[in-house]
């Protein structure tokens, strides 16, 4: 008599043979697994700990660890420590920064560049985001946005190279200007803060565009129409309605672009010149030479990180108070 027949005879038509169960059923019934799960889920507290242990460990050692180790090394006199030598802690690496204009000049230049480039990106992408969010039908919005996303999938180096070809002495811009008879000799765009700006704005535009777009998209059309009905012109509508209501998008876009543009290394190296050395190049210099320069490099990177952190925090606070001021 088969198992099925026996089951039917016993009046248990639904009884299962072990092999009828799915993989999951068998797994759940498998002794060792079952025991382990019961142990793990014995209390909500234990279950949480098992879930949380790995993420917490990962975040502490992998996300926070590198930054903390960098800060620790920045306070030492030598890294890596030579065998037999005692490592001592010092503030000399930080003092070195303030002691020489060759160090702090690129630092301030980087911050000024980053602020200016962020502002340029904002001015450039705001009308684009505005057009997409307010003047295009829902269906075409996605299409036109996707069109803009294509170039931004391409990597940093490739796009930097594309700008080199665009702006070179025999590049496209100079060729066009020459053909139009506007210039006799090519304009040396390359290796200046201009070429660097074009490159960095090109690389960061998307990080501004997306927050602006999502902020503008949330803005109901009726708000603008009401303002228009009340007689507000285009400029007033923009300044008194759209701008204050999209401050959140502006704030997060600017923060992102600022942080990204302070961190560029390859783009300033390739597009900039000797007069536009940025702090990233200064920092990198300490890692190309012998190991004992590492603490100085770490100190400089820490200074850069702290400065970027303070500036973005102050900026965000400022934008928040601006928003509150508008609301009242």
């Amino acid at each position: 008599m088969t198992y099925d027949a026996a089951a039917r005879k016993n009046g248990q038509p639904n009884a299962e043979r072990p092999s009828d169960r799915t993989f999951w059923g068998r797994l759940a019934g498998w002794g060792p697994y079952h025991g382990l799960m019961r142990l793990a889920t014995a209390s909500p507290r234990r279950q949480f700990l098992i879930l949380a242990a790995f993420p917490i460990l990962w975040v502490l050692t992998q996300h926070l660890g590198p930054m903390l180790q960098m800060m620790r090394v920045s306070l030492t006199d030598a890294y890596p420590v030579a065998p037999g030598v005692e490592q001592s802690f010092t503030l000399d690496n930080y003092a070195r920064f303030f002691g020489d204009s060759i160090f702090w000049m690129p630092f301030f230049r980087t911050l000024i560049f980053a602020v200016v480039f962020t502002f340029c990106t904002l001015i450039l992408t705001y009308p684009v985001a505005y057009f997409l969010a307010r003047h295009v039908s829902r269906k075409n919005q996605m299409l036109l946005l996707l069109l803009l996303l294509i170039p931004f999938w391409v990597g940093e180096i490739v796009r930097t190279y594309a700008i080199m070809i665009l702006l070179g002495n025999t590049g496209a811009v100079n060729l066009v200007l020459k053909t139009l008879g506007l210039i006799d000799r090519p304009i040396p765009f390359m290796y200046t803060s201009f070429s660097m700006g074009v490159g960095i704005v090109y690389l960061t535009a998307l990080y501004m565009l997306l927050p602006l777009y999502s902020a503008l998209e949330k803005l109901p059309k009726s708000v603008n129409e009401a303002a228009a009905d009340l007689g507000a012109g285009a400029w007033t509508r923009f300044r008194r309605v759209s701008l204050p209501l999209t401050i959140e998008g502006i704030s997060s876009g600017c923060t992102l672009v600022f942080l990204i543009s302070t961190g560029f290394y390859a783009t300033p190296v390739l597009l900039g010149g000797p007069s536009t050395t940025v702090f990233a190049e200064t920092i990198a210099g300490f890692f190309h030479v012998a190991g004992d320069q590492w603490p100085t490099g770490a100190a400089f990177a820490t200074i850069m990180f702290m400065a970027a952190l303070i500036i973005t925090t102050v900026f965000q606070k400022l934008m928040k108070s601006l928003r509150k001021g508008e609301a009242t």
Partner: peptide, 17 residues
């Protein structure tokens, strides 16, 4: 954090770590 740290600083921190 790792996504917000500027590129060069992240690279240096990883190099040291």
């Amino acid at each position: 954090l790792p996504a917000l740290v500027p590129g060069i600083i992240s690279a240096i921190a990883f190099r040291i770590y």
